[in-house]
């Protein structure tokens, strides 16, 4: 009985997210337009400026468009994670987060369900992007499209958990612009999404070190290798570790007695 309750709650949260996704067509389109602009405009312009040497998992010289495709998949998921964090702050301001939190299930489970629902949407978006990239001529090995699925799920979970964590800290919607400046941009630019690590190292050791510890770098590499049928163990471990840390912190953040919802003032004086 109890087990069924858990499953039903998960179904409820996922269905709601899908319904909302279907209704918010603008959100879907803008989530697609962003990486496509990078692919069609930025990458096309950069193609001649930036030569990419042969590095794993690639076996030949590749076009810059091919190089940044996994990074743009990561970008789709990064924005999606932040978007769901935004919608959670919105939900909390609007009150519908309360409906979720007063349900008779452990809060950690409810938040994890919310996270899974967000990942479902982010994986869907990633595949649509891959489809358009394919039509544009960026083809990965056929099996790669299947192999990339678990990588997308894991990276989606990690970035979603980061969004969840941020949403427990952000008190108001207005603060969300800060998330753009202080989370999305540094994470994206300080990663291997746009240029390989050795290129970063050539220009700055500091940036190289930062990029190495950036969880987004590992998510992108995990996706990149998976898309070419290879398993990047280190990237997988790093992404999974980041996921665990973010998720645990987020659950603590939403805990009614210890978390941020109350941090402003404890009952003890």
């Amino acid at each position: 009985m109890r087990f069924m309750h858990y499953l039903r709650a998960l179904r409820g949260v996922m269905t709601r997210e899908l319904f909302r996704f279907v209704h918010q067509r603008e959100r879907f389109i803008s989530a697609l337009v962003r990486p496509l602009m990078w692919l069609f405009i930025f990458a096309a312009g950069f193609r001649s400026t930036l030569g990419v040497a042969i590095i794993p998992p690639y076996e030949t010289y590749i076009l810059y468009e091919v190089y940044i495709t996994p990074g743009l998949l990561g970008m789709v998921q990064l924005f999606n994670g932040m978007q769901s964090s935004l919608s959670m702050v919105y939900d909390r301001e609007m009150g519908s987060m309360k409906i979720l939190l007063v349900s008779p299930l452990p809060r950690g489970y409810l938040l994890t369900s919310k996270l899974l629902a967000g990942v479902l949407v982010s994986v869907l978006q990633a595949y649509v992007f891959l489809g358009i990239a394919y039509a544009y001529g960026i083809e990965a090995p056929p099996m790669g499209y299947l192999d990339v699925l678990p990588a997308l799920v894991l990276s989606g979970l990690m970035l979603g958990a980061l969004g969840l964590l941020l949403s427990s800290f952000i008190k108001q919607l207005e603060n969300f612009a800060g998330v753009m400046n202080f989370v999305i941009f540094p994470m994206f630019f300080l990663s291997t999404a746009l240029y390989p690590l050795w290129k970063i190292q050539e220009s700055s050791e500091l940036l190289y070190t930062l990029a190495q510890y950036n969880p987004f770098t590992h998510a992108v590499e995990l996706i990149r290798f998976a898309l070419y049928g290879q398993f990047n163990r280190d990237a997988c471990i790093a992404t999974a570790t980041a996921l665990l840390v973010f998720l645990i912190l987020a659950i603590i953040g939403y805990n009614p007695s210890r978390g941020m919802m109350q941090r402003k003032g404890g009952p003890s004086q």
């Binding site: 709650a9 949260v13 269905t15 909302r20 009150g95």
Partner: peptide, 30 residues
Amino acid sequence: LGVVFQQPTLDLDLTVEQNLYYHADLHGLS
């Protein structure tokens, strides 16, 4: 516990029924 919060908490783009099914799921109703 059943709660009606001061702020509206229904999903505006969902139907009445979809909103209610969501709640029923959260409470484990078949």
